[in-house]
Computed example of a mutant assay.
Amino acid sequence: MKNKINTVIWISLIINILLSVLKLYYGFKGNAGSLKSDGFNSLSDVFVSIMILITLKIAHKKPDENHPYGHEKFEGLMYFLLGLVLVLTAFSIGANGISELYDYFIHKRVFIKPSTSTIYVAVIAILLKLLLSYLTITASKKYKAPALKADSVNHLTDVFATSASLIGITLAQFNLIYFDSIASILIALLILLSSVEILKEAISFLVDASAEKEVVSNINQTIKTVLGVIRIDDLKVRKHMKHYYVDVEICVDERLSLKEAHDIAENVHDTIEETYLDVLHCMVHVNPGVPKKKK
């Protein structure tokens, strides 16, 4: 699985390098400000792909003395850094677009019409990014890899961003030059929106946020089916990247021997870990209680 995830990231890296060169070269040569902005966005994607490759190598290491719970949270840290990189990229591109509009309308600066070759580059970029988006979305669902999920969101945002660039360049062919700068600002907003979503999810990975209500409810119902459990006194399910940790307090008949109570707790532990493969560990605490009398 690790090798297959790495293959997807390597494909992304190679295509992002190609797109960075194409966009920046034709953006500068063809006087297309939005394509240049999109080129710098692709350049940040190259950095992101390299960062993902390095992080995944660390995240897949086995637990050790200093990291008894494994290294998966390094992937969450990378997820967070990816969000920050996208925020910085968005502000940089947006500021450049606003500056160009200011020069156009206030300083009456004359801008050269973008070359038609930049239109073809934008179309090629959109097609390649659609391919990457499909590839990473499919792989992220199959392998449940948060890093690939973040990268798929990034690729999909790039599709809309380059589409905005394409529209801006096309309108500029009809002497609506300032639309190229407006496209740069739209690109920045799209990148900013996706970065906020990535940061929110990354924070949930890093702060041990509670699992989804449906997951908690399902685990709750499963524990209640275990023979000997009178009730559930407390249940906590926390995220650990794509996995979960479960802490539960169950109530059992106070008249049972220690061995009998332990066997019930062990049964709960085994049932949860065997039923829910995403659960890394289920910790069970036993409380004494009195069973309800049957009417």
Rank of each mutant, 00 (worst) to 15 (best):
M1K: 08
M1R: 10
M1D: 06
K2H: 09
V8H: 00
V8L: 00
W10L: 14
S12G: 15
I14W: 02
I17D: 07
L18V: 14
S20C: 14
L22R: 04
Y25N: 02
F28W: 11
F28H: 09
K29R: 11
K29L: 10
N31I: 02
G33R: 00
S37K: 07
N41E: 10
D45L: 07
V46S: 02
S49V: 01
I52H: 05
I54D: 04
T55L: 00
T55H: 00
K57H: 14
K57A: 13
K61Y: 05
D64M: 08
P68A: 11
P68F: 12
K73T: 11
G76Y: 01
L77E: 00
Y79S: 12
F80C: 03
L82Y: 01
G83T: 03
V85F: 14
L88T: 14
T89E: 03
S92Q: 11
S92L: 08
A95R: 10
S99A: 12
E100A: 13
L101M: 15
Y102M: 10
Y102E: 09
F105V: 11
R109V: 11
R109D: 09
F111E: 14
T116S: 11
I119W: 05
A122F: 01
A122S: 14
V123G: 06
L130F: 05
L135P: 03
K141G: 01
K142V: 01
K142L: 04
K144T: 07
A145F: 04
S152R: 08
T157L: 05
F160S: 10
I169Q: 05
F174H: 12
L176S: 07
Y178S: 15
F179Q: 01
D180W: 02
A183I: 12
S184A: 15
I185N: 09
A188Y: 13
L189N: 03
L193H: 12
S195W: 10
E201D: 15
I203A: 12
S204Q: 13
V207W: 05
A209K: 03
E212D: 15
K213R: 11
V216D: 04
T225V: 08
V226N: 10
R231M: 08
D234S: 14
L235K: 08
L235C: 07
K236E: 12
V237T: 12
R238V: 14
R238P: 01
K239N: 13
K239R: 15
K239C: 06
H240P: 04
M241D: 02
K242L: 08
Y244C: 06
Y245F: 15
V246H: 07
E249D: 13
E249P: 00
I250D: 07
C251I: 05
V252R: 02
S257H: 03
E260S: 14
A261C: 07
H262V: 08
D263P: 04
D263G: 03
D263V: 04
A265Q: 09
N267C: 12
D270V: 06
T271E: 13
E273W: 00
L277V: 10
L277P: 00
D278I: 10
V279A: 02
L280Q: 12
V284L: 02
V284T: 13
H285S: 09
H285N: 10
P288M: 04
G289N: 09
G289Q: 07
V290E: 13
V290F: 06
V290W: 05
K294G: 07
K295Y: 12
